[in-house]
Simulated scan of single mutants.
Amino acid sequence: MVEQKRILVIGATGNVGRQVVSRLRDAGAAVRALARDPASAGLPDGVEVVRGDLSAPDTLEAALDGIESVFLVWPFLTAEDAPAVLDVIAGRGARHVVYLSSTGVREGAEKQGDPINQFHADMERLLEKSELEWTFLRAGGFATNTLQWTEQIRTEGVVRAPFGSTSRPLIHEHDIAAVAVRALTENGHGGAKYALTGPRALTTAEQAHTIGEAIGRPVRFEEVPQEAVREQMLTQGWPGEVVDGILNAQADMAAASEPVTSTVEKVTGTPARTFAQWAADHADDFRPAE
C-alpha cells in the first residue's frame, strides 16, 4: 500500500497516462484522472474521472480539489498556456508536479535543437521558477512511437522510414509509469531529473525485425529518403518548423548513438523492459486482422 496522497493524472488517456492511472489504482492510491470527455475515457473501473481541459485552465479547479500531487503530460507544441495552468495547480493547493519531459532537453541551453525539446525545456523552466516541488521524467524514445508502423506491417510486412541506422534505447510505457508512480507516492524525489531509457539500443531496422519476431512473421526494413518523409508529413498537415525540427533531430541521432541509462532500475528496483518485451506485449497491434 502506497502513502495515501491524492493524485491527479493529467494526460490520463494517453499511452503513459493510462499506465500511471492503472498502477496507482492497483497500488491503492487515491487517484483522479482528468479527461476532456470522461464518458469516452475508457479508464479502469473504480477510477474517478473528472472533466477538464488544459486549454481552459479554469476547468481544472474542481479537478484539483484536495489534490496533493499531479502527473502532468503537456499535449501542446508550445508552453504558451502553461503559466496559467501551473498557477491553477499551485493555487488549488497541490504541492508536487511530476512532469513527463524528454532526454533531448539540453541543460542550460536557451535555444533547444527542435520544437519538441524546446517546449519541454520551457515547461521545465516554468516549473523550476514556480512555487511547486517538481520531478522531471526525461524519457527517451517511446517504444509506442513504433505503432505508427502498424498499417505497413499488417498489410505488407514492411517498415519504410528514414535513418535506418539510428540507434535508440526505446523505453516501454510501463517503465515510465513505474518511475512516475514512485515519484508520485514516495518522498525524496523532489528536484530530481530522471533520464529514462530502455536497457539496450537498437537501430530502426533492428526494431522492425524485432517486431517481426514477436508476431511470427518477417518484417523487412526499407530506407526512405528524408525529403520524401518531409513531403509526406507536410501533406498530413504538420507545421514546417516542426517537421524540420523532428527530421533534423533524427539526423543528429543517426550520427551519434543515444546513451543508455539504468535509472529505471535504480528508482524502481526492477530492470527496464527490453524492446523485445514491448513488441511481445503489443504483438496483436501489428498482426493482420483475421
Rank of each mutant, 00 (worst) to 15 (best):
residue 288 P to A: 08
residue 101 S to T: 08
residue 122 D to E: 15
residue 271 P to A: 12
residue 199 P to A: 07
residue 12 A to T: 08
residue 230 R to H: 12
residue 228 A to I: 00
residue 60 L to A: 04
residue 233 M to E: 12
residue 113 G to H: 10
residue 88 V to G: 05
residue 224 V to T: 15
residue 74 W to A: 05
residue 182 R to M: 11
residue 26 D to R: 13
residue 44 P to W: 12
residue 207 Q to T: 09
residue 252 D to T: 05
residue 173 E to I: 04
residue 13 T to P: 09
residue 6 R to L: 01
residue 122 D to Q: 13
residue 54 L to I: 10
residue 206 E to T: 02
residue 1 M to N: 08
residue 39 A to N: 09
residue 128 E to P: 01
residue 136 F to V: 04
residue 241 E to V: 09
residue 176 I to Q: 05
residue 212 G to I: 07
residue 281 D to E: 15
residue 209 H to W: 02
residue 250 Q to K: 07
residue 117 N to H: 13
residue 148 Q to A: 14
residue 47 V to F: 06
residue 82 A to H: 02
residue 77 L to C: 01
residue 26 D to Q: 14
residue 50 V to G: 01
residue 79 A to Q: 11
residue 209 H to E: 15
residue 290 E to F: 04
residue 224 V to G: 00
residue 115 P to N: 10
residue 198 G to F: 00
residue 101 S to N: 05
residue 216 G to E: 03
residue 125 R to G: 10
residue 223 E to S: 12
residue 76 F to Y: 15
residue 147 L to H: 13
residue 36 R to N: 10
residue 116 I to W: 11
residue 243 V to N: 10
residue 136 F to Y: 13
residue 37 D to V: 11
residue 211 I to L: 05
residue 270 T to N: 09
residue 196 L to A: 00
residue 116 I to Y: 14
residue 267 V to W: 04
residue 142 F to D: 02
residue 228 A to L: 12
residue 126 L to E: 14
residue 5 K to P: 00
residue 122 D to W: 09
residue 208 A to E: 07
residue 187 N to E: 15
residue 202 L to R: 08
residue 278 W to H: 00
